[in-house]
Structures are given as C-alpha cells and as structure tokens.
C-alpha cells in the first residue's frame, strides 16, 4: 500500500496508483481545504506543496508522489501561528468567496520560499536585503491561479508585502 507523508504525518492509502493526489487528500484523508476547480491543472485551486514546491494536485497521480513531503493548506499555518502569507492575506482582506484562496496562498508561499532560497544560492546572503521585495511583474509571472471573484489587486499587494517577511 502506498505510503504518504502529509503535513508531517504518515498515512497508508489503498487506492489506484493513478488516483490524483487531490482526491486522496480530500476523500481518503479528509483534508478538504485543498479544492477542486477544474481537474486539468488549469486553475490552481488544488495547489499543494511537494517538497516545498507548488504542484497542482488534481493532475498528480498518487504513484508519483512517493516519499515526498506533501504540505496542504492545513499544514501551512493556523490562526495561532499563521504563515506570513496568511498574515498578509488577513491584513489585505483578500478573500471574497474564498474558494481559490487555499491554492492561491500555497502558490504564493512556494513562490516566495523558492525565490529566497534561489537568491541564497546564487548571490549569497548579502543580496537578500536588496532583493527581498518582489515586484508586481514577478508575482504575475509566478502565480497563474484563477480567482473568479477577481481578488488579484489584493493578492498582488499581499504577496509583495509577504515577501518582505519571508526573506
């Protein structure tokens, strides 16, 4: 039976290898914060982290997850200990219907984390302060999730502000 590590806990699941991670999370593990929007990798509502990288779980067969660490919105932060992205999401009052927001925040968090570690390697710690704040264009290029309610203006501001903290 495939083993799965989600938010630091190990699970065994008895499903077909082709079943996408999304449905394993939602229905086998009961982690329903991750959303279904399109099933084709087009909208990002199902975004989770695999070893820290943002992945669209609706098109990721469980067989290809293997030993990797999966993080979902339930593992990103809590009201008591919010992730910097979540702090900014609250400060900017981003959500409207809220349905896209778990995936949106997972994308934002992975983008900011990936950016910091890349800079680290490429330019050394000294450059971090200069490069800490992301630009609107970088955010737009990195986050391709759909928000039908149209919260983009606030998403952009929240990500830029979160970038100051994540670094």
């Amino acid at each position: 039976m495939p083993k799965l590590t989600v938010n630091g806990s190990e699970y065994e699941v008895d499903v077909e290898p082709a079943m996408p991670l999304l449905w394993v999370l939602r229905e086998e593990l009961g982690l329903r914060g991750t959303k279904f929007g399109c099933g084709k990798g087009l909208c990002g509502a199902c975004t989770v982290h695999i070893n820290g990288r943002a992945v669209r779980s609706c098109i990721l067969p469980i067989a290809s997850v293997g030993e990797a660490e999966v993080t979902t919105i339930e593992g990103l932060g809590t009201a008591e200990a919010p992730h910097p992205v979540q702090e900014q999401w609250i400060r900017h009052r981003v959500p409207q219907c809220g349905y896209c927001q778990p995936g949106m925040q997972m994308s934002a968090a992975a983008f900011l984390a990936g950016r910091t570690s890349q800079d680290d390697m490429a330019e050394g710690p000294d450059s971090l302060n200069n490069r800490a704040t992301v630009t609107d264009a970088e955010v737009a290029a990195a986050i391709t999730n759909i928000c039908r309610c149209g919260c983009y203006e606030r998403i952009r501001r929240a990500v830029v502000d979160a970038s100051k903290e994540v670094s």
Binding site: R32, F36, Q86, I90, R93, P95, P102, Q105
Partner: peptide
C-alpha cells in the same frame, strides 16, 4: 469592519457544499 468569515477563508476551514461530509457517503 472586518467580515466574520475572513479567517476561515484564509486558513481553509470554510465548509463549502463540496466539502459536506456525511458518514457512509457515496459520490
């Protein structure tokens, strides 16, 4: 004033219709 559902929507705990869970449910 801040909308009462803000935090739930940020932490992913809002229960939409699609998240309704009933024991023994089929799909």
């Amino acid at each position: 004033h801040v909308r009462p559902d803000l935090a739930d929507k940020v932490f992913g705990t809002t229960e939409y219709g699609i998240d309704r869970d009933v024991s023994g449910m089929q799909f």
